[in-house]
Simulated assay, not measured.
Amino acid sequence: MTSPPSRTDRFFNFIRRLNSVVLSLLLLAGAGFMAFLWWESRPSAPTGPTAPPQVVDTAAGESETVDLDFTDAERIESARTDMLRLITSTGSVGSYGSRRKDVARNVLFISDGETTGRWLFKDHKNIVHALHELPEASRDANDSETLAIYVEFNAIRAGSQSATHGGPVDVGLARPDGKELTTVLRGVRVLSRRVADGRLHITFQRDAAVWQAEIALADFRESGKRQVAKVPQSL
């Protein structure tokens, strides 16, 4: 007949069982920790750029699906404003026989401290051919103040060829924060421009004549214009 285990034997049996349980828990914790390290060390799946939204463009009288996107912001420091072009894109990148075409349709101005942005045009039915800051003359270009925003554009009309560069354009001026857009010339081909003494000096062709004009950047009013030449009718 086997004698019952003593109190000391029961104590050591309990210790052995407790050690087994603790060891098992440690092994499980170690395995879980290694699995966590493996999961965190996996290379993350590549995330490409977000695809631009697609919209239906009906400005030219026909429906066409285009990609809609913004360019990187250009900072107008003197006006504490960011300027972004709204771009429509058609075609595919790199596809055989196709060519991607990007067209600026509007300009968004975002000024510091304002809760909403401001569009240069009321709608998006224009093509922006050129967009520039007009700084005052200064020895240090970094310290020069922007006097106005200069834009060459066309309104889109059904069947028009407004997107063709080199054709007649309208010329507009706006404040550095995008306010007070004023069309100062219509249907011209700009040949040169410069800023001096607070005025825009611009040379342009309209029909068969070449003109020079001065436009005050303080109020966008024409302060002088003269015809300087006529295009030869024969050679």
Results as ranks from 00 to 15, higher is better:
R7T: 11
R10I: 04
F12G: 01
F12Y: 05
F14R: 13
R16T: 10
L18Y: 13
N19P: 03
N19C: 10
V22T: 09
S24D: 04
L25F: 05
L26N: 07
L26D: 07
L27Y: 00
G30S: 13
A31S: 13
A31T: 11
F33V: 11
F33P: 03
L37Q: 15
W38I: 14
S41E: 08
P43E: 14
P43S: 12
P46H: 02
T47G: 06
G48P: 10
A51D: 12
P53Q: 02
Q54H: 13
D57V: 03
D57H: 12
T58K: 14
G61W: 05
E62V: 14
S63C: 08
E64M: 13
T65P: 12
T65K: 15
T65L: 08
V66I: 12
V66N: 02
D67Y: 10
T71E: 15
E74I: 06
R75T: 09
E77V: 08
T81C: 13
D82R: 04
L86D: 03
I87H: 05
S89E: 07
S89K: 11
G91M: 01
S95M: 12
S95H: 14
Y96R: 15
Y96T: 14
G97R: 05
R99G: 09
A104Y: 04
N106T: 09
V107M: 05
I110W: 08
D112N: 10
G113C: 06
G113L: 06
G113E: 09
E114T: 06
T116P: 00
G117T: 01
G117V: 00
L120S: 09
F121E: 07
F121C: 07
D123P: 07
H124C: 03
K125V: 07
K125Y: 10
N126E: 10
N126C: 07
H132E: 11
H132P: 01
H132K: 11
E133L: 04
L134I: 04
P135I: 00
A141L: 11
N142L: 09
S144W: 02
S144T: 08
T146L: 04
A148N: 04
A148Q: 05
A148K: 07
I149P: 04
Y150S: 00
Y150N: 01
G159T: 00
A163R: 04
H165D: 12
V169T: 12
V171Y: 01
G172R: 00
G178V: 01
L181N: 07
T182G: 03
T182F: 01
T183C: 09
V184C: 08
V184F: 04
R186N: 11
R189N: 13
L191N: 12
S192L: 06
R194E: 15
V195S: 05
D197N: 13
R199L: 11
H201L: 11
T203N: 06
F204R: 06
R206I: 05
D207W: 02
V210Q: 13
W211N: 15
Q212R: 10
A213E: 09
E214N: 11
E214Y: 02
A216K: 12
A218G: 12
A218N: 12
A218E: 14
D219Y: 03
F220H: 13
S223I: 01
R226F: 05
Q227H: 05
Q227I: 02
K230P: 01
K230G: 14
V231Q: 07
P232A: 10
S234N: 12
L235T: 14
